[in-house]
Nucleic acid binder design. Structure first.
Lengths: 138, 138
DNA sequence: ACTTAATTAGGAATTATTCCTAATAATAAT
DNA sequence: ATTATTATTAGGAATAATTCCTAATTAAGT
């Protein structure tokens, strides 16, 4: 948290309670919340915070590589976990879990060579049923 | 093409000119067009075709695993290439290329184990600059 | 040809996101 | 501490992709 605040301050951005609250929530949760969900949560403490501020803050943080965005079923979900990893999305309940996987980097390098692209960012998603939804189905 | 028509017909779906035109375009193109783009193209031959029909057809084809959908920058892009592969998106011009990669399946299996999810679908995207946009930048 | 039920066109409704602007407040300077 | 500067915010309007709705059309079985 201090690191994030420091890095924003260094670049001349102001540290507002709204930004703090959003960063704080993202760091604490294991969830991959949507902008709207973050808004609902943060609103409990800061009832005046607007959804547009949540969006602006999220895109600022994304720009600074402090959060990651993934698009799932027409909406963006955010995550403070910015290292390369796999996001596993439950198509029933919408839960998203992270799985680390060292070989992702290799794939990225191989694909960059084959395709002649300059790769800047990766996004690996799997979709299925989480263990809880899986067992409820039977 | 015949396979697709046959498989739709088998399941009781009607073979309409609209559906044929959409499938035909998707099979011929190397692009990963959006619904709106498909609509614009198919409209040249079938001026009356509606965008909602394009959407319905695409989601029918997706349901039947005949096309793949990826979400990029707030819009869905479609592709008749349904085997596991990597989509590489150019963040400048929006082009999408495919790269085959055999190790994707391994990753999927490993992640399924670790996460205890039942995996149904995967989506691997890399984002960067295509070779053409890359050279234009310098 | 006739029937009937799936499909379509067209536009309205919905939803996530972005845009706009006057008011507010974080920071730097005094 | 006060003040001045200017980034940021709240709130709502605008936008854009997608979904929904319904009367008219039409593919396919008889």
């Amino acid at each position: 948290m201090e690191q994030i605040v420091a890095s924003l301050r260094d670049e001349g951005f102001r540290i507002t309670p709204q930004r703090m609250a959003i960063v704080d929530y993202l760091l604490k949760t294991e969830d991959h919340p949507s902008a709207d969900h973050i808004h609902k949560v943060v609103r409990k403490r800061y009832p005046m915070i607007s959804l547009s501020t949540v969006y602006k803050t999220l895109y600022l943080l994304k720009e600074k590589n402090l959060v990651n965005e993934i698009e799932v079923e027409g909406e963006s979900r955010f995550d403070a976990h910015t290292d390369d990893h796999i996001n596993i999305v439950c198509i029933k309940c919408g839960k998203i879990d992270d799985v680390d996987e060292e070989t992702l980097k290799d794939i990225q390098v191989k694909a960059a060579k084959k395709s002649k692209y300059l790769i800047l960012k990766s996004s690996f998603e799997l979709h299925g049923y989480c263990s809880s939804c899986k067992s409820k189905m039977k």
